[in-house]
Nucleic acid binder design. Structure first.
Lengths: 349, 349
DNA sequence: TTGTACGCGTTATCAA
DNA sequence: TTGATAACGCGTACAA
């Protein structure tokens, strides 16, 4: 069985105080005289007391748990976000119960009910599997990051402006036609705005453009083939034009660049490229790739801020729920590197 | 304040059973008649019961929590391990409380005492900050992964054989001199055996070799400079020899490859390369990099197995602690790709 | 198969 | 500034 723990009872017997006073030593030490504080401190030391937050949680109703559901952790984006979330422990003191979702609604629902059973005070959801309507119905403060968020609070990058910035960078380095390569992301996902932002910029500036929707869901080697086919397609369709390629993330961008370099031993002058995310692959590619940064630390920070606000509200005697979900937009940052350099062209002025 | 929850009390009043019977419905349903199971199931539904594992934890003394301390999550290796650990939830049902250590003993100690306060049943440690002796002293089952492990159970890759395999691959593709590039990793860290394995292979096979210890702790751009210097050094020192380079991980390998390709527009024929880890960068590099795989899923699986074994022992009435820490070694796997291809040379037979 | 009574270790309420 | 007592919600001998 379990080893008997040293509890407030032993401390109170040893010091002659009541359990209540011992409890106060932890939660409101100033209400004891300095002398008595010391007595209790000594007793804790002598008896080897270890605090028990499980009992504290049950009695106080506060767990300081936040549940997190990420789709996975092998994609850099998710693990970086989780990294930043965990590091907010120093600021807020919340502990994180983490699940890696597996895209199946049934199991993710199981994860959520497990989290609720542990009386988490809030949830941060990056997984796309469960609808925001259902998430809102669980009666726990929720913040989502870069996913469908109609009925819940959320933090997203400014994807629309990100798309514009990418098109701007490509346009600025003299591209004749802008190509956006993405997967067929549904319109309710925030990342879809990268497409609309890109298109809108082209429309307003009268720039020839094309959006290519590719299914990247296969294994890497298949994606290489698809990329090579895409390059052949572009070379044929736009032989004399400088092509500005905006890829939906830095991994596909690095792959696209590698395919180009394998074909031409360099980034040919009729190509310019911009990725998205500013994940480490972009800076560490064979040619450093220009990209649009998602400010992951700010995204994580804002998510916590919105969540903490809601959780604090819940702790009041008469919590007033939000009338409308809060949707926070974090700016993206254009990171120019070598794939959008103006090389041969002379600036016309 | 907190909203009154539906408890066993309400269920028992509604159904006419005692709280005990309701408890049994969850923990030993077969001890109730099917009919009564149904009655309780209905009541739970009608009253909207939500289970409370906090109370259950306090009463039973079992939290099903495992504490995890990783150094960070931006390095692919750690996030992949965590990913695999989280996915064992399906098999064992343990939940993971995760902290990202920050290399400072004081704060990591704070994390550990926080974990202990939540009555975790076991710990998995990837962080290097706290000595295994101290970790062992906390009286909780511990398993470490790829770190100093004298006084605690551990799971590590077969780093020694990994070093041998790397040397073997390079030797097999006709290299005249083998170079191992690593950082100055202390001998008590398992990864140090990559160096000794490499050296031992060279010694036994009479192969000229050199170990280069480089400090990669700076920012990426500094590491690029250091890599370029290293290449110049090697080109000068071994001008007519085919150089087989074994790098301590796939990221430095990809960087090394990029520097070579930038210099020569290809992987020159007097170079061959092997990385370590088989992380995605190796397969996705400009030239797919041969590497030594760390079987991350097996590492995580073995770690859980050893931990679960210890935790089960703790739950017995008379737990018998391990006499000696268990140290499990997981084999590495040589992954040949393009950077160890036999190209110009004719096989001699 | 079901129930009684107590325990888990802490916090909250009210009184002194 | 301190204490007695009752929660918090569930598990578990032991008894029936």
């Amino acid at each position: 069985m379990r080893k008997k723990e040293v509890t407030f009872k032993e401390i109170s017997e040893y010091t002659g105080f009541s359990k209540t006073t011992v409890s106060r030593y932890f939660n409101d030490p100033d209400s004891l005289t300095l002398e008595n504080q010391q007595k209790i401190a000594d007793a804790l030391e002598v008896l080897g007391y270890k605090e028990n937050k499980v009992a504290r949680m049950l009695a106080s109703g506060k767990t300081e748990f936040i549940g997190v559901i990420v789709p996975n952790l092998f994609l850099n984006y998710y693990s970086e976000i989780l990294n930043k979330l965990l590091s907010t422990y120093e600021k807020y003191g919340y502990k994180f119960l983490v699940f890696a979702g597996n895209e199946q609604p049934e199991t993710e629902r199981k994860y959520i009910s497990e989290l609720l059973a542990y009386k988490i005070e809030g949830m941060i959801i990056l997984s796309h599997t469960i609808s925001s309507e259902e998430l809102a119905s669980y009666g726990v403060p929720v913040v989502s990051i870069e996913r469908e968020d109609k009925y819940i609070c959320s933090v997203n990058s400014d994807n629309f402006n990100g798309g514009e910035q990418a098109a701007q960078m490509l346009s600025d380095c003299g591209c004749d036609v802008l190509i956006h390569i993405n997967s067929d992301v549904p319109p309710e996902i925030p990342a879809h705005k990268r497409i609309t932002g890109f298109k809108e910029f082209c429309r307003q500036n009268n720039i020839a453009n094309e959006v290519l929707l590719v299914d990247w869901s296969g294994v890497f080697s298949e994606n290489v083939v698809k990329t090579e086919e895409t390059i052949n397609y572009l070379d044929e369709k736009y032989p004399d034009k400088r092509k500005g390629i905006f890829l939906s993330n830095d991994n596909t961008a690095a792959n696209f660049l590698n395919c180009l370099v394998r074909k031409h031993s360099c980034l040919p002058d009729d190509y310019r490229m911009v990725g998205f995310d500013n994940s480490s692959v972009s800076a560490e590619a064979i040619i450093p790739i220009s990209t649009i940064e998602q400010q992951i630390d700010k995204i994580a920070g804002e998510a916590m801020e919105i969540l903490v606000m809601q959780m604090n509200e819940q702790k009041k005697r008469r919590p007033v729920p939000l009338k409308e979900p809060v949707h926070k937009i974090v700016p993206t940052v254009a990171i120019p590197r070598d794939t959008t350099k103006n090389r041969e062209i002379t600036k016309q002025k």
